[in-house]
Design a protein around this nucleic acid. Structure first.
Lengths: 338, 338
DNA sequence: GTGAAAGCGCTAACAC
DNA sequence: GTGTTAGCGCTTTCAC
């Protein structure tokens, strides 16, 4: 906490606190005599003055704090997003408060409300579900909110994500180019926009290639290795033939590979698989995973900039939808079908 | 921000704001008539009252915010720590503000000062360097600070970390038990406590086994794959014979394996290697990495609890050093020497 | 057990 | 260009 207060700086500089405040505030600095500014600034430095942000916030109802809401920070997908956001925010003089909802909507509700009590200037939310009452409420309120990575069906809020459609299309094209025709999609959960949109894109791409879509999409309960493993098990039991898998994300791919390996199906000899997100170490697997690389750090950064824009001009409630370009990183997992 | 203020709750309940404040505040609730408490609480709920934490903080000089300082959130070591800390803190009604220093001491300085301006109640710091002027300053100030994962040479501050010494000893014992006698240590940077202490423990363990210590420790410039690769290169060029490596952490191990693999040295046939931390996916490598598992989530949680303790009773400046138990996870990387 | 009054540290509106 | 005044929303003495 700033031990030394503005009054003391003012006293040291021989001016009134209000003048000191103006001198120290970039916005009002030009309303004051340059020489006075000098004196005040020097005094502030000498005393080691650190403004009390709480008091400032109480007065201005601006806290220069932005909240980032994450479902699970230990999921390697999110740290780069956090990092990108943090860099932009702290570069703009903002502080980032992070909250990890542990994928629990109730917890999330409480945390968001607590952040609001702390007077945060805005939210970046990475937990959007397809139907999300909390987001609907937030969208109605005046608080600036930007969705990142996942969006919601209804909420009219700005969104920054990856170009999921293109990522899936690239994957399917790649597999088809290698001669695959029996391709299965392990879809992410239907209560996420990514799950829905990647599945839709998968069906579209398959149709374009004149390939059958019937029962080629298997939905996973969550984006986890466990869910991927369970889906692979169901797939095996169903007896549905396949030579390639487009997994909804890398974790699903890992879970599926584990189960298929245990069942004696070798990759890439017996089947090919693609992931999504390119988590760290995916290139270290044997064989390395072919996957869709998403610019996660940029995603966080762009989301933060979008939020700052909104906070800057509170009148214009924008609902920009930004899709960042993705890229298929071919690593050799997906050899031609046998 | 809490749109509805305390005054309005008080008005609705037909009491004075001061009474409403007491009724809503667990600490002073018993100074007020239970029936009045009822009325106030009900009114607060009905109006959806959310206390303004800034105003409260301004008055009480308590913000219920704790800051967590991390060198790089994209390093998989830190997310579990963040998570553990977040859970404990938000469970105790605290908010976590996260700052990523990008391993830059100057940035860190600015960020810490900014957090102080925000009136945070305390710090958890994961960026400690062995010589760390910032920590020395903080230790002198009255702010509660807890170090996590790494500690500092001088600063008399509480510390929560893993039992590095034991981890290294387990690794060496394991390798020796498999017949290795030429063991090299890729040490972490000397400006981190982990780097220094693991190296010291390595030398001690080697001596205990009656093995030579001379030129068996190679220091790495940072805890990164790149630094591990560079160290391995130096090791190869030196011509020093070895059959096993104890890497300062998993990233160093990965970097070394890459270089050694490119040089035609196969693991585990030609050499064995152990890591430290058990980052996610280490078990997915081929061969899976034998490594020291550190309870990272607990580490964050214990650090948070230590901080809360301190904040709770500001008088007693403690300097507890907590070492959490570690475990060697043997995964088959480390077969017997050829 | 409850009300009145003061003030946390700062900034915005208004004077001069 | 600078000082004066008032108040952000809350808690906390101090009366009663």
């Amino acid at each position: 906490m700033g031990r030394v207060r503005l009054v003391e700086v003012a006293r040291a500089a021989g001016v009134h606190p209000a003048t000191a405040s103006r001198a120290l505030n970039p916005g009002a600095r030009d309303e004051v005599n340059p020489r006075t500014v000098q004196r005040v600034v020097r005094a502030a430095e000498q005393l080691g003055y650190v403004p009390n942000t709480l008091a400032r916030g109480l007065r201005t109802s601006r806290s220069f704090v932005a909240a980032l809401v994450i479902p699970d920070i230990t999921n390697s997908l999110f740290p780069p997003i956090v990092r990108g956001a943090e860099q932009v925010l702290s570069g703009a003089g903002f502080t980032l408060v992070l909250t990890d909802t542990n994928n629990d909507p109730d917890l999330e509700r409480g945390q968001v409300s607590s952040m609001r009590a702390h007077g945060v200037d805005g939210f970046i939310i990475a937990t959007a579900r397809w139907q999300d009452p909390l987001l609907d409420e937030l969208a109605k309120s005046a608080v600036p909110v930007v969705l990142v990575n996942r969006r919601s069906a209804d909420a009219a809020l700005p969104f920054v994500g990856g170009d999921d459609q293109r990522g899936v299309r690239l994957s399917v094209d790649h597999l088809v180019a290698h001669g695959h025709r029996s391709i299965v999609h392990l879809a992410g959960p239907a209560d996420t926009s990514t799950g829905r949109e990647r599945a839709t894109a998968f069906r579209a791409a398959m149709r374009e290639h004149g390939l059958p879509v019937r029962s080629s999409v298997i939905e996973c309960a969550s984006y986890s290795e466990q869910a991927g493993a369970a889906a692979a098990q169901r797939m095996l039991r169903s007896g549905r033939p396949f030579t390639a898998i487009v997994a909804g994300n890398d974790l699903l791919a890992l879970g599926a590979m584990e189960v298929l390996g245990a069942a004696g199906r070798r990759c890439p000899e017996d089947y090919s698989i693609t992931g999504f997100n390119d988590l760290p170490f995916m290139r270290k697997l044997t064989p390395p995973l072919t996957t869709v690389q998403v610019p996660l750090t940029d995603m966080g950064a762009v989301a933060a900039r979008t939020l700052l824009d909104w906070i800057g001009k509170p009148d214009s409630v924008r609902t920009t939808q930004t899709l960042l370009p993705v890229e298929l990183v071919v690593r050799g997992t997906t050899g031609p079908a046998t």
